[in-house]
Each structure stands twice: as C-alpha cells, then as structure tokens.
Design a protein around this nucleic acid. Structure first.
Length: 493
RNA sequence: GGGCCGCUAGCUCAAUGGCAGAGCAGAGGGCUUUUAACCCUUUGGUUCUGGGUUCGAAUCCCAGGCGGCCCA
C-alpha cells in the first residue's frame, strides 16, 4: 500500500486511539531533564553503568529512528539536548517494541528505563515503558541539510529553530543580551515600566506611524513610533530613573536594516544629561559585549570591532565637513546648503528641508564609515526637536548618536525641559511638515502641559536592540535576529 | 519604488526546447551496537499563478505573486 507521509501518520494516530492510547495526553509523568541526565551519568563508564543500571525517565522529541531487526535506536531531543533510547525485541513486551518501531520523527515521548553505554560510547536509555506525549502529523525538514529556503525559515521559524542550530543559537543569544541590558539598568537603579503602544498622538521620533481605529470610542489611534514622551511624563511624575524595552512601529520600508516593528530600549535619568547617557551607553554595551564574546574585541560585518579604550567623539558638523568639505552650519537654509554641496562636488539630492538634507548628507557620506564605536554629537537643532540646546551654540543641541559597524545603535540627548522652547520647536516641526517633511513631529498639547508642570534636567537614551544584537552576533540581516520578521502575506492566505 | 536573481516531490537539489529525476523523508521487506545506520523494492509532481510562442515548454516571451541581493 502506498501512502503519503501525512496519511501514514494520521493512520498511526488512529491506530493509537484504537489501542486506547491518548495521543495528546493532558499530563506528563515524572522525568529528569535530558541535560541533567547527561550531567549525572555522562562521565560514567560502560562498566559502571552496567553494574548500577541506573533508572531514568526522559522526555523529548523524536529526531531519528534507526531500526534493526530485533534492536531499535531512537534519538530524542529535549530543549536542544539529545539522548538516545534503545529497545531489544527479546527484552521488552511485544506491544512496546511495536510502539517504539512505530514512532515518527517529530513525535514527543516520555521514556522510562535504565541507562547503559553502547559500544560506540553513547549514553543510552534502554526503554522499559513509553508514553506518547504528542503525535506529530507532518515531517520535519531533511535531517542533514536542514531548512535552507529563506522564506520558509522566516514563515515557519519553528522549523528553522528545530533544524538549523544557528537559528537556535541566535534566538537564545538575543534573549541573553536583553537580559544583560535589564540587569545593567536594574543594578543602576532604573525602574522598568510599561507605556502605551496605542497612542492618541504619536511622537518622540521622526517617522511615519501606523494608524488604527478604536471602534467603541470611535477614535483614531497610532501605534507608537517611540515611547519617549510617555517616559518623560513619568520623570515629570517623580520616577527619576525609568526604562522600557518596547516594540515600536514605523511605517516605512522593509530591508535588511529595517523591520516595521522593532525593539527599542529607552532609558531616562533625572538630574542627568547626555554626558551621563554616554557613560551609560558605553557601560551597558561593553558589559553586554563581554557577556556575549568574553571580551571587547570581536569580528562583525567584516570588521574587527574594538570597544575598549576611549570611544571617538566627533560633532556632526565636523564629521560632515571631513567627508564632504561642506560646513552645514555656514549654510543655514536649504538653498545655500544645496549651493554649498554643488560647490563641493556633492550631489545635493532632493531633500525637502535643510534639516533633512543635513541628515541625508550624514547618512550617505559619514555613517557607512563609522566602524569603530563613535559618538556623533551636537546635531543641528532643527534635527532634534526634543533635545536641549547647547549652552555654547544654540544652533546645535546636546545630543549624541552612537555608531558601530556603520550603523546607528543609540541616540541620546539632554532632554528639552523648557516648555516654551519645546512649544516653539514643535511649531517649527509643523512648518516643516507643511514644507513636505513627512517625518516631522506633531504638536502634542498634552505633553506640553506636562512639561509646563516642570521636568527636572534629564538625560535620555534609546538603544536599538535588534541592531545591537545584529552587531554582537554578526548576522547579515536584521531578519536573522527577529524571530518572526515581517513578510508579505502568502498567496491564498 | 527601480534593477538583477530565484521559485521543480514534505525537505535538499538535478534536468539549459525533446520520456520531469536523485538523495533524505514516506510505504513494503531484510537486518541485535546504530547514530546522516545499511541493503532490496516502491509510492509521491498544478515544475509559483495566468497568458503566449512552438510539432513539443520546468526551460523561451509577457503579466502577476512571493522571496533574496543591490540601489533609491
């Protein structure tokens, strides 16, 4: 009889039920994690195990069935750790032997028996009883090559995790990196908080939002592009050190550097400024890198990155001037900046405003070359509507962006706490929006009211977690570090 | 948004205008130390979709879908 695999597995499922076996039982009998079994018996010799015949019970997913005539080996895996099961036809009841031979790759089982070591030296559980824990109806990807199809890896990440060790390694490492960030901030007296993802008005970053609608309130809502304005409200409310690790949503392109939904760590420290945030960024990123690499020098994106020593600091003005010869603070409007670019032999592009053009010049000519950790400081005020002006030069703000491996990893400033200046900046943003800047920030009366009540001098920082993970784990695309990256819908679904 | 590349069995891949194939997985058989087990037999196809060219299309052309890379 010829059957396809799905049918064959469904048939075996039916047979289990006919024999009175629940293929999806509610409870699991006692067991010891496979990892612990190896820890306890991994060093025992063949003879020691034979003498003691230690009893053990394990659970896991069937990854291989190797059947001989009167002997069968089954490889199971629990949470990434493998254990071999065995059964001899001459030593176990007939129905148990049949049940073991009838296992499919992908089934979950619990096995009880005694441990022994094979001629090849593998610790093996000789099965005396077997419970089906969950019957699998679909085959896993091919055991040797794993799942190669990139689209399938993202759409069915569970298969990627099961068959590609690298996917599992990245998922676990990402989780540990986020834990390390939390641990650093918690130790430094920061309080982890949660603020709304659904916001009546978006703000805190230059980006276009996703728009949604609340039916009962008949209210337009935005998915947050940042949690900045809410975290500042908390500082105003007397929570001096707060942070949030949040998903933000920005309605823009999808690429190997961008996912529309991404993770940002934002932290705010009352009575601090952007210099304190520099120290925080350096301390946190160094500690996290140590936890991943055991040191501060590592390979990433084809470069050897060195996080030790003093990190370079350069003003945005100097950085652009070094690469292009253009002094953006000497060309204060769009027209003269375009002329300055032409004079310098630089394509002026089609930016709608002066600020956007400065940003474009930086992104194109400076950013890709910032490989080693670099603080870029003193951004033009027009580009930074939420940052405090520099006391030395009101044309620029107290701000830095941290670059590593050609990517922006963090953005921080001395937060603007002058409510009148803040109102003026938001009004300027309205003018920029009118001039065609689609990422200009809206005027937020509710936030301004909060500021008018008084906010202490505050330093704030945002760190892109996906990018940090990508740099530390050296993956070519942000999609490798996001478990379920955004994809178009499959045809027909 | 543009350019280039890809999409073939559940998975990994062949077939460069002339019979759609292999390995793994599945089914049947054999096998008491395997671990990518092995040996024999064998099932399985909307070749992404829809048009077109041709005696004949997985292959060439057009449109679309999804993905990748590069660019914007």
């Amino acid at each position: 009889m010829s059957e396809n695999e799905l049918e064959a597995r469904r048939t075996r499922l039916t047979e289990l039920r006919e024999r009175g076996v629940d293929p999806y039982p509610a409870r699991v009998g006692p067991f010891v994690p496979v990892e612990d079994i190896h820890a306890e018996y991994g060093e025992k010799t063949e003879e020691e195990l034979e003498a003691a015949a230690p009893p053990a019970a394990a659970v896991g997913r069937v990854r291989a069935v190797r059947s001989f005539g009167k002997l069968v080996f089954v490889g199971i895996e629990q949470d990434g750790v493998a254990l071999q099961l065995s059964a001899r036809k001459t030593e176990v009841p007939e129905d148990l032997f049949a049940a073991i031979k009838g296992l499919d790759v992908g089934d979950f089982v619990r096995a009880e028996g005694t441990l022994w070591r094979t001629k090849r030296g593998e610790l093996t559980l000789s099965v005396a009883s077997l419970d089906m824990l969950s019957k699998s109806l679909r085959p896993l990807p091919e055991k040797w090559h794993g799942l190669q199809d990139v689209e399938a890896r993202f759409r069915q990440r569970y298969l990627d995790l099961l068959s590609n060790p690298e996917a599992r390694r990245i998922a676990i490492a990402r989780s540990r990196i986020v834990s390390a960030c939390r641990s650093y901030l918690d130790r430094d007296g920061f309080l982890e908080v949660e603020t709304p993802a659904l916001q009546p008005l978006y703000g805190g970053a230059a980006a276009r939002p996703f728009v949604t609608h609340h039916n009962v309130l008949d209210q337009q809502l935005y998915l947050r592009i940042s949690d900045e304005l809410y975290l500042k409200r908390l500082v105003i409310g007397g929570l001096d050190r707060v942070y949030e690790i949040a998903h933000n949503f920005r309605n823009e392109g999808v690429s190997r550097k961008h996912n529309p939904e991404f993770t940002l760590l934002e932290a705010y420290q009352a009575y601090g400024d952007y210099r304190d945030m520099m120290a925080l960024a350096q301390g946190l990123i160094r500690e996290v890198a140590e936890s991943v690499h055991g040191g501060l020098v590592f390979e990433s994106q084809g470069h050897t990155l060195d996080l030790s020593g003093e990190w370079r600091e350069v003003s945005m003005r100097d950085a652009i001037r070094e690469e292009t010869g253009i002094d953006v603070l000497e060309a204060r409007d769009l027209e003269s900046l375009r002329n300055a670019a032409k004079q310098a032999g630089v394509e002026p592009g089609s930016a709608p405003t002066w600020g956007v053009m400065v940003d474009d010049l930086f992104s194109e000519h400076v950013e890709p070359g910032l490989i080693q950790p670099t603080f870029v400081t003193q951004h033009p005020t027009e580009l930074s509507p939420l940052a405090k002006r520099s006391s030395e030069d009101p044309r620029v703000v107290e701000r830095f962006e941290l670059y590593l491996a050609g990517m922006e990893l963090a953005n921080a400033f001395s937060e603007l706490n002058d409510p009148l200046d803040q109102r003026g900046r938001m009004e300027d943003q309205q003018a920029l929006e009118a001039a065609g800047d689609e990422e200009a920030q809206p005027l937020d009366e509710d936030f301004l009211r909060a500021l008018e009540h008084g906010m202490p001098p505050t330093g704030g920082i945002g760190i892109g977690i996906d990018r940090l993970v990508r740099v530390l784990l050296d993956t070519p695309s942000i999609r490798e570090v996001i478990l379920f990256p955004h994809l178009r819908s499959e045809a027909g679904t």
